[in-house]
Structures are given as structure tokens and as C-alpha cells.
């Protein structure tokens, strides 16, 4: 009985602390709704995890109608598809050009010459990272490798550094089919290992158009909370 009462009281305390209505109070004043929706999301996510995630396949007709740059993202482990718009292009002192892709929920993915170097608004984001050896290999559609250095958010606004040793292998020509279009691409596979006790192992895959170095399709690690993203460049 004691157990029950205590837990119930604790749960009640939390709910009470979160509820109420207010006028002109600091933000976060009326958040019971938010708490409830968070709960539902959690439950839904749990239910969804029972089956294999399903992703949207773009039809040729849909692709034909698209006239702005669009990137499809499939969340390979978490499940779900979104279409990203190109928000900004930046050049800085680090090799490669950064494109900021914007999701429908305003989350962002940073690609440096097609290599995922940062995320925002997903939660537990990649704050920043150095992928220069990978960027050089991918841009040249050739083998390569070296150190990749991540600064990761543990779900808060601190950051933890993760250093991986990466090896990019050229797996040869493997064309990429996007709707009714076929692209001549080279398949690169990157294997990384590192972290404490070398327990972190990550694989990234890139399908790169030789010559332009444009990454048409890729499967890349987006941090421990997000898992891998499949990124398909529908329209450049």
C-alpha cells in the first residue's frame, strides 16, 4: 500500500506541477497538453516499433512536379520519411560546401559535399564534426579515409567528443535509380571504429556521381539518438 500511495502521490505531484492555466506567465506555464502529447508520441513510437518501418517511394509523376531542390530522408532505425528543402548554402575555411537542409518540423541536416556533418532540432544532435578525409574521398568518388571527429549532444546542451577512425572503400560502379531516372554512380562504403574501448562501429554508404562528385544517395549515421538516415537527392 505504501508503495502505491507514494508512487501515485509522486505521479500526481508531477502532473500537478505541469498543469494549470495562466495568463501572460513565463512560457511553459500551461504544459499539461504538451506532456500529454509527449506521452502519446511515446506510446505511438512504442507501438510502431513492432513492425518494420515503412518508407515512402516517390513516383515519377511526383518527381516531375518537383521544381525546387528536394532531399528525401528515410529514418532507417526510427522509421519515417520526410522531404527536406534546401535552406542555405555556405562556404567556410573547411573543405567542402555546406548545404543546410530543412525538414518539415524545422529540424536541420548539414551536409558538407553530401557528407553529414551536423544536425539540429532532432534532439541529441551532432553539434559539429570534422569529416575532412571523408569529404575529400566522397567528392572524388574514390577510396580514402582518416579521422572523423564528432561533438555530440547527450540530449542536453553539453557536448561530448567522439573520435572515429574511418576507412572509405570504393566498391565499384553501382547505379542509382530514383523514380524513373537512373544515375551512373560509384558505390563507396565507409567503416568507422572508435570511442571508448573501440565499442562504437559505424558504417556509412555513398552513391556518388563520378566527375561532379554529387552524392545522389547515401546512408549515413546521424548520431546515437537518430541512427542512420537514408538521404536521396530527388532534385538538385
Amino acid at each position: 500500500m505504501i508503495i502505491k500511495t507514494k508512487l501515485a502521490a509522486l505521479a500526481l505531484g508531477v502532473v500537478v506541477a505541469l498543469s494549470g492555466c495562466s495568463g501572460n506567465m513565463p512560457e511553459g506555464g500551461n504544459i499539461l497538453g504538451a506532456a500529454t502529447s509527449q506521452l502519446l508520441t511515446t506510446i505511438k513510437a512504442r507501438r510502431a516499433s513492432g513492425g518494420q518501418p515503412e518508407f515512402i517511394t516517390v513516383t515519377p509523376a511526383q518527381l516531375a512536379k518537383t521544381n525546387i531542390p528536394v532531399m528525401q530522408v528515410n529514418l532507417l532505425e526510427r522509421g519515417g520519411t520526410d522531404f527536406l528543402r534546401r535552406r542555405a548554402v555556405r562556404n567556410d575555411n573547411t573543405p567542402g560546401e555546406v548545404v543546410v537542409w530543412l525538414a518539415s518540423d524545422k529540424a536541420q541536416v548539414f551536409l558538407r559535399n553530401g557528407v553529414l556533418v551536423g544536425t539540429r532540432g532532432i534532439g541529441g544532435d551532432i553539434v559539429s564534426s570534422d569529416a575532412t578525409p571523408t569529404v575529400l574521398a566522397v567528392s572524388g568518388a574514390r577510396a580514402g579515409g582518416g579521422e572523423r571527429r564528432y561533438f555530440l549532444s547527450p540530449g542536453t546542451y553539453e557536448q561530448t567528443e567522439l573520435v572515429l577512425r574511418c576507412n572509405v572503400e570504393n566498391m565499384g560502379r553501382q547505379d542509382t535509380q530514383i523514380a524513373n531516372l537512373s544515375f551512373n554512380t560509384t558505390y563507396l562504403r565507409e567503416s568507422c571504429i572508435g570511442g571508448a574501448g573501440d565499442k562504437v562501429r559505424i558504417t556509412n554508404e555513398y552513391w556518388v556521381q563520378p566527375g561532379s562528385g554529387l552524392v545522389r544517395r547515401s546512408k549515413q549515421w546521424a548520431g546515437p539518438f537518430s541512427g542512420h538516415f537514408e538521404l536521396i537527392l530527388l532534385k538538385n
Partner: peptide, 20 residues
């Protein structure tokens, strides 16, 4: 415990949060 979402969100990712 109202630690609500606490219990729920465990995701399978190849490089686990614990390892990273």
C-alpha cells in the same frame, strides 16, 4: 513516477547511446 517518457524511449541504433 510520472517519469513518464523515461520508460518509453529506447531505440535500437547500431552504435548505442551507452557505447557512444
Amino acid at each position: 513516477a510520472g517519469l513518464v517518457t523515461a520508460a518509453g524511449v529506447t531505440r535500437a541504433t547500431p552504435a548505442s547511446i551507452e557505447d557512444v
